[in-house]
Amino acid sequence: MANTRLGMVIDTKRCIGCHTCAMACKVENNLPDKNWWNRVLTIGGEGMDTPEGVWPNLAMSYITLACQHCENPACVKACPVGATYKREEDGVVIQDYDKCIGCRMCLAACPYTGVRVFNWEEPKHQVGFPIGDANVPAHQKHTVEKCTLCAHRLARGEEPACIEACPVRARHFGDFNDPESEVSQLLLKRGHFQLLPEKETNPSVYFLS
């Protein structure tokens, strides 16, 4: 077991599906056009912001979905060249663009559809110069990319951008291997779930219910 297991706890009771985490991620990581590493999914009807049920007996909530930084990541096993790997020291799942050969085996293996994106073309950016953090690796054509848990910020001892950006304070970050951490404490106090537990990936992202 790694010394630390970094991850997130997201409070679905507080989350309002506002997409601020997604937008902050888009800017922080200088994401190419159409790429979103973090997305908001409506739990309810078919489309965005549609509820389940029949008027007026309705329910709707949101989850935000990005790389789950699984303890047992399916992507790592699938990658033929070791471009996607789990960091021993903190459990963060990283995608090394320089090693990535663009085979997309990881996309197929990952049960969390859409958290990995593939740059089919030269990445294009609406703003014509690099924005966001200066230490974000440049995006590359024909590579897979995804949430890095803001590894560039972790290196400076900062939290991921989506954590500080959440306007309703629904997102928490910390070390699940530290029983005193805020995230560990939240899991002790509140009911919670992981996404697709049957896949046995043990995500490091938990949702408070």
């Binding site: 601020t20 902050a24 609406q126």
Partner: peptide, 12 residues
């Protein structure tokens, strides 16, 4: 001091 996606996107 809260800001939302509109603040993040404004530089665009």
């Amino acid at each position: 001091n809260t800001m939302c996606l509109r603040g993040h996107a404004h530089l665009q």
